[in-house]
């Protein structure tokens, strides 16, 4: 594969995740509203929101430090870099070797670390409550995620996401118990990490139930736009991650001709649509759980991931 191809695939991937992520958020909102027999906002509303927010002046609390103003950029940048390294429509990402799956997870961890600091920066009680609960959720979700990565890496023999996807595309995988466990665990973690029901409610405005929204309560204008954008990116990233590992069909292999890549983009969009629908249906069917029940929920994901890894240690075929 030529360098030019690699660069163009990498750049189009970076553009694609930026372009599609608000659409996914809009789609989930729309579908949820229709399931509740509401009209719902237009599909493109998130784009309008982002532009409107970016144009407004930013209001920053008097007690905020300079970190408060930098953090949205850090959070956006780390999330974007992470999202750019998860294969969406093609596996031949030029820079996929610069960070493997563990590094991608750690990049998201960096974003969360800084966001939690932003919640504490102004010195309000809501910011603190958000950061503190986010820290709890993260400390349970992150090890679960690492266990899932272990399971996948031990099956595929690699932590490079492109290679994992390539391995999954190959015929020799078959149905495995450990893969099933990893899938369920990954879905649970994805729900928790993106602050979806039942862990957190992205649409809530009841202060005491907020986690993510409480952390970013003090943000406005362009800062808020960046943070909203990063949340959308993160949702897209997790969808792309699940898709590329568990339903990798349609991913253009490295060196494939242009039309295969275009088909890859269409298939990826279709995958996003299906994932959005499933998320909307799931969120409509379930109620938010108490904060301290989240520990059990994520504990289940951790145990599943752990069992998956253990199975791989014990047997090659499970």
């Amino acid at each position: 594969m030529g360098l030019i191809d690699g660069i163009s695939i990498q750049l189009s991937q970076m553009a694609l995740v930026l372009a599609l992520s608000p659409l996914l958020t809009g789609l989930v909102r729309k579908l949820k509203a229709r399931l509740l027999l509401r009209q719902g906002p237009p599909l493109l509303q998130p784009y309008r929101d982002l532009i409107r927010l970016a144009r407004k002046e930013a209001v920053v609390a008097e007690s905020a430090s300079w970190l408060f103003r930098i953090i949205p950029y850090i959070v956006f940048a780390t999330t974007w870099v992470a999202a750019a390294l998860v294969p969406t429509f093609a596996t031949g990402l030029l820079f996929s070797w610069s960070a493997d799956l563990i590094a991608i997870i750690a990049l998201l961890g960096s974003a969360r670390f800084f966001l939690a600091l932003a919640g504490m920066d102004v010195g309000t009680s809501f910011g603190g409550i958000g950061s503190s609960r986010e820290a709890m959720i993260a400390t349970l979700a992150e090890p679960a995620l690492i266990m899932i990565v272990f399971t996948l890496a031990l099956i595929a023999g690699s932590t490079q996401l492109s290679n994992v996807a390539g391995f999954m595309l190959s015929t020799g995988v078959g149905l495995r118990v450990s893969l099933g466990m990893a899938l369920i665990a990954l879905i649970i973690v994805a729900i928790a990490e993106n602050g979806r029901i039942p862990v957190d409610n992205p649409a809530t405005h009841l202060e005491l139930t907020m986690v993510h929204e409480a952390m970013v309560l003090e943000y406005s204008g362009r800062h808020l736009a960046l943070i909203e954008f990063s949340s959308s990116l993160k949702l897209l990233l997790y969808t792309a991650l699940i898709a590329c590992v568990f339903v990798p069909w349609g991913l253009a292999p490295a060196g494939a001709p242009l039309h295969v890549h275009l088909i890859g983009v269409v298939i990826f969009a279709a995958k996003l649509g299906v994932a959005g629908l499933m998320l909307a249906v799931f969120e409509t069917m379930i109620a938010k759980m108490r904060v301290f029940r989240v520990a059990d929920f994520l504990g289940a994901a951790f145990m599943l991931g752990f069992l998956g890894t253990l199975l791989r240690f014990v047997s090659r075929s499970l």
């Binding site: 407004k56 209001v59 609390a61 008097e62 007690s63 940048a77 309560l217 003090e218 204008g221 362009r222």
Partner: peptide, 21 residues
């Protein structure tokens, strides 16, 4: 991101008391 937003959108900033709901 910083360049795009500051150039294309807005770079105005105002200090105000914390919102805190």
């Amino acid at each position: 991101a910083a360049f795009a937003i500051h150039r294309l959108a807005s770079d105005r900033l105002r200090r105000a008391p914390a919102w805190d709901c």
